[in-house]
Design a protein around this nucleic acid. Structure first.
Lengths: 204, 204
DNA sequence: TTTGGAAAATAAACACCGTTCAGTATATTT
DNA sequence: AAATATACTGAACGGTGTTTATTTTCCAAA
């Protein structure tokens, strides 16, 4: 009886169609400007249909985040090539900011937007971010162990490094960095300079 | 002719009433859950009346931000007491995170929420944040000049330090830090540890 | 092959939202 | 007292996320 399987497949396909449309539209127009009705229009279904596949907008955003984290993981995989842990940590930092520059809207909905931390899955754990953090933590722990960076505790070190990169990006994304007195278009330069300076500062 | 003056005064009073109600409600229920209609209810006026005093919700939020920055300035004034610049920089860091802990919802609408960067005032400058940043910059510049911190460039240093503190706070506010493996309620401790560690790391 | 029932899709509605506008009530000037 | 300017509001517009009752489509047994 292959019908049940086909139904299941069709259900998965439909969720794919919805998520794909959502991602494209979020990236194109920004999360806040895209409504369930817009997404429904795009895939040529009624808005109510989306609710047969996702219980609410939060659950949909959760799946979109999942997709975005795959993109991030891929980005890391392509850029973390060095053998030396400190070198790899530097590559990680640059890859992180590079991902943001290529996908600012994705970064926003992964790390800054309030939703969907209300969603069922999110109450206690944060599976989507979990793996990415593990990669950072392990790398940082290696650096701490080898005394390559001026941190004693790996947890504190990982948290700090992430916070620093995230802070720069979050301020940039909300145009807060423009208060820093800069000529012309030095903003990107200064972000890069800040990261360079930070990496120098934390080195042993 | 005191009528014009009285009218002007009444207009200012009304704006105050609106802003005061807005702040209270934003703090109590969170910015996103408070509508113009709610605010109007609270001050016992019609929603349309608010639009006689503020052209849109963005402009209202701008005034709320202005108020929040006064609170922040006051918080700094009460905590930045040391004569030594490095010591004062440390006080600044702790005061910044202290302000966040006392007013998380205010912090959110000052630095994280997307609006009201669309508002007229915000196109080029960011007056509200400007002064606070100046205070940070001048202090950091002093530290750089006196070679108290391991940064060469004051702009990069100020940006970095702000980004670090903001990053920690922003991640905490979105519950992203819970991926860091911690027992029980070590989160606040770890944030404090991260700041302590950071301050140690940047010292000369 | 037709029919009955399950499954999928939808139209329409609900309760909100930010915002605008026509119209009313109040205050000021003439 | 009449005319005018000011302050305010009820109702509406076009949008939102979401739910419900209804219709359409599909599959299995008679």
């Amino acid at each position: 009886m292959g019908i049940a399987e086909r139904k299941e497949r069709e259900r998965a396909d439909m969720r794919r169609r919805i998520v794909d449309a959502a991602i494209k539209m979020f990236v194109e127009e920004g999360y806040e400007k895209v409504s369930i009705r817009n997404i429904a229009d795009r895939i040529e279904y009624s808005p109510a249909t989306i609710y047969l596949y996702y219980k609410d907008k939060d659950e949909l955003l959760y799946d979109v985040q999942k997709e975005a984290f795959l993109t991030l993981a891929d980005h890391f995989a392509r850029n973390l090539t060095a053998a030396d842990p400190l070198e790899r940590l530097e590559q990680l930092a640059w890859a992180y900011v590079g991902f943001y520059r290529e996908n600012p809207e994705l970064y926003d909905l992964m790390f800054i937007i309030k939703a969907p931390m209300n969603a069922e899955h999110e109450k206690e754990k944060w599976e989507n971010g979990d793996r990415a953090y593990d990669a950072l933590y392990n790398l940082v722990a290696e650096c701490v162990k080898a005394e390559k960076i001026r941190f004693r505790d790996a947890t504190v070190a990982a948290m700090s490094i992430w916070a620093f990169a995230h802070g720069l990006i979050a301020l940039d994304l909300r145009s807060r960095l423009k208060v820093c007195k800069l000529h012309d278009n030095e903003l990107n330069v200064s972000i890069d300079d800040s990261i360079s300076a930070y990496l120098e500062v934390i080195k042993c």
